[in-house]
Amino acid sequence: MSKTNFKKITESPSLYNDLEKMDTTTILSSINREDQKVADAVAEKIPEISQLVDEITSRFLDGGRLFYIGAGTSGRLGILDASEIPPTFGMPFDRVLGLIAGGDGAIRKAVEFAEDDTTQAWKDLQEYEINKNDVVIGIAASGTTPYVIGGVTEARKQGILTGCITNNPGSPLAEAVDIPVEVAVGPEFVTGSTRMKSGTSQKLVLNMISTALMIKIGRVEGNKMVNMQLTNKKLVDRGIRFLMDELDIDRPTAAALLEKHGSVKKALQEVRKGE
Score class of each variant (00 low, 15 high):
residue 132 K to A: 09
residue 52 L to R: 00
residue 161 L to E: 08
residue 49 I to F: 11
residue 86 P to V: 04
residue 147 Y to S: 06
residue 72 G to I: 05
residue 103 G to M: 13
residue 136 V to G: 07
residue 126 Q to H: 07
residue 145 T to C: 10
residue 94 D to T: 09
residue 102 G to W: 14
residue 166 T to Q: 00
residue 153 T to D: 10
residue 105 G to R: 05
residue 94 D to H: 14
residue 136 V to R: 04
residue 60 F to M: 13
residue 153 T to Q: 14
residue 54 D to W: 11
residue 159 G to S: 11
residue 77 L to C: 03
residue 156 R to F: 05
residue 116 D to S: 06
residue 166 T to F: 01
residue 121 A to R: 09
residue 102 G to R: 13
residue 140 A to R: 04
residue 47 P to D: 12
residue 146 P to M: 03
residue 146 P to F: 01
residue 79 I to G: 01
residue 111 V to K: 15
residue 79 I to V: 15
residue 87 P to K: 12
residue 141 A to H: 00
residue 164 C to M: 11
residue 99 L to A: 00
residue 134 D to K: 05
residue 138 G to F: 11
residue 150 G to F: 11
residue 112 E to M: 02
residue 101 A to S: 10
residue 97 L to I: 15
residue 110 A to Y: 00
residue 68 Y to L: 04
residue 129 E to I: 00
residue 120 Q to F: 12
residue 103 G to A: 11
residue 135 V to C: 06
residue 108 R to I: 03
residue 133 N to C: 02
residue 149 I to G: 06
residue 99 L to Y: 03
residue 132 K to T: 15
residue 167 N to C: 15
residue 66 L to C: 06
residue 116 D to K: 12
residue 157 K to N: 14
residue 155 A to N: 04
residue 161 L to W: 06
residue 160 I to L: 11
residue 130 I to G: 03
residue 138 G to I: 03
residue 144 T to A: 06
residue 50 S to Y: 12
residue 70 G to V: 01
residue 92 P to T: 05
residue 73 T to F: 14
residue 64 G to M: 02
residue 145 T to D: 13
residue 72 G to F: 00
residue 89 F to S: 09
residue 72 G to T: 01
residue 134 D to A: 04
residue 163 G to N: 07
residue 96 V to A: 13
residue 92 P to L: 06
residue 84 E to L: 11
residue 167 N to E: 08
residue 82 A to E: 02
residue 135 V to M: 02
residue 72 G to H: 00
residue 58 S to A: 14
residue 58 S to C: 05
residue 123 K to H: 13
residue 66 L to T: 01
residue 54 D to I: 07
residue 53 V to S: 04
residue 100 I to H: 00
residue 117 D to F: 13
residue 81 D to R: 02
residue 61 L to Y: 01
residue 133 N to S: 08
residue 102 G to E: 13
residue 153 T to C: 08
residue 124 D to A: 01
residue 149 I to T: 09
residue 166 T to W: 04
residue 111 V to F: 14
residue 113 F to S: 13
residue 96 V to G: 13
residue 69 I to P: 05
residue 67 F to E: 07
residue 166 T to E: 03
residue 62 D to R: 13
residue 123 K to A: 12
residue 135 V to L: 05
residue 110 A to Q: 06
residue 154 E to S: 04
residue 132 K to G: 02
residue 153 T to P: 12
residue 86 P to D: 04
residue 75 G to Q: 05
residue 112 E to V: 02
residue 150 G to T: 03
residue 52 L to W: 02
residue 55 E to D: 12
residue 117 D to I: 11
residue 72 G to N: 02
residue 136 V to Y: 10
residue 82 A to S: 14
residue 50 S to T: 15
residue 140 A to Q: 08
residue 157 K to W: 02
residue 150 G to I: 07
residue 108 R to A: 13
residue 49 I to K: 01
residue 107 I to E: 00
residue 129 E to T: 01
residue 123 K to E: 15
residue 139 I to T: 02
residue 51 Q to C: 08
residue 60 F to V: 00
residue 100 I to A: 03
residue 108 R to Y: 14
residue 121 A to V: 10
residue 71 A to P: 03
residue 125 L to H: 02
residue 148 V to G: 12
residue 133 N to G: 07
residue 84 E to S: 09
residue 78 G to L: 05
residue 61 L to Q: 13
residue 152 V to Q: 08
residue 74 S to K: 01
residue 163 G to A: 05
residue 158 Q to R: 09
residue 134 D to N: 02
residue 106 A to Y: 00
residue 160 I to G: 06
